[in-house]
């Protein structure tokens, strides 16, 4: 006897129909790396499992005009092996390489990572600094939201019961091509992040033209650090500025203490990770920047 009903639709529209009918009684299954442990821990209330892994429409990484499109079923390893992401959007591949381990990366998807909405969702961090757009559909509606507006709280997103993610998009802009991601975990693989930071930066004449900073495991959801961003914008890069920005980052994050690290360490380390990521990018943008 199965405890759940299982459906494996072939098209996105079928999924939307089922969602429309079942609402919160349905649970989408992608890579299953969160869903199965949750079933085991009896944390899933839904009764219908919609396995979307056979839907070709939801897979793949493409260039679309001036945008990059990622299907929600893109696996973490595909981010590493795709020419499109690995050549130009290193911030994504860096995060992917630090994600879980090579086996989990074969099945875990970026859609699943975003919807899980864990504060430690590693792929959300670079997607935040890429200013990604989440494409959401239901039978009622199609909408697009900025990823920074997607998360509501730990495990909570703006997705309605009848909605699903059908794509993720970001621009092929200069700032998006100049990103850096760093993760600190308890060990070098299979580690849930203690803290992560991603930075995307565009410098013009030694001045910060555009900057996006995001951080993981230091707030109830993955977050953009917009305060630090606006502090830095249009400023000339020098050591003092960086030091001040580190303080801003540390002020802006809202970490908690848990078994992996204390609030204070997370605050400290997010500033440090910001510094390291920023310097890497700034160093390669402007050669005169010292230390």
């Amino acid at each position: 006897m199965s405890l759940f009903k299982y459906i494996s639709p072939k098209t996105k529209d079928e999924v939307l129909e089922i969602l429309q009918k079942e609402k919160s009684n349905a649970c989408i299954v992608a890579g299953c790396s969160n869903v199965l442990p949750n079933i085991r821990d009896k944390e899933i209330k839904a009764k219908v499992l919609i396995d979307i892994t056979n839907i070709e429409q939801l897979k793949g990484i493409y260039q679309k005009e001036d945008k990059i499109f990622l299907g929600p079923l893109t696996t973490i390893n595909e981010l590493i092996y795709s020419d499109i992401t690995s050549k130009e959007y290193k911030v994504l591949t860096q995060a992917a390489q630090e994600f879980a381990d090579p086996l989990v990366r074969n099945t875990a998807t970026i859609g699943g990572n975003l919807v899980t909405a864990s504060p430690a969702a590693d792929i959300a961090i670079p997607l935040l600094t890429l200013d990604a757009l989440i494409k959401i559909e239901s039978t009622r509606d199609k909408r697009e939201v900025k990823l920074k507006d997607f998360f509501v709280g730990p495990g909570e997103t703006i997705l309605q019961d009848d909605e699903m993610i059908v794509g993720i998009e970001f621009e092929q802009s200069d700032v998006n091509k100049n990103g850096y991601f760093i993760k600190i975990g308890q060990r070098k693989a299979m580690a849930i992040s203690i803290a992560t930071v991603a930075v995307n930066l565009e410098v013009r004449q030694n001045k910060i033209n555009q900057i996006r900073i995001a951080a993981g495991s230091v707030a109830p959801t993955p977050v953009r650090l917009t305060g630090a961003e606006s502090f830095l914008k249009n400023k000339e890069i020098n050591d003092k500025l960086v030091e001040e920005a580190i303080d801003r980052v540390r002020e802006e994050v809202k970490p908690i203490s848990d078994i992996r690290a204390s609030e204070e360490y997370r605050r400290y380390i997010s500033g440090l990770l910001f510094k390291r990521a920023f310097k890497k990018l700034a160093d390669s943008s402007i050669h005169q920047f010292t230390n």
Partner: peptide, 15 residues
């Protein structure tokens, strides 16, 4: 053709 952890894969995903 991919190595996966079978405890976090549904049996029916191997159909």
């Amino acid at each position: 053709e991919k190595a996966v952890k079978s405890c976090i894969t549904l049996a029916l995903q191997a159909n």
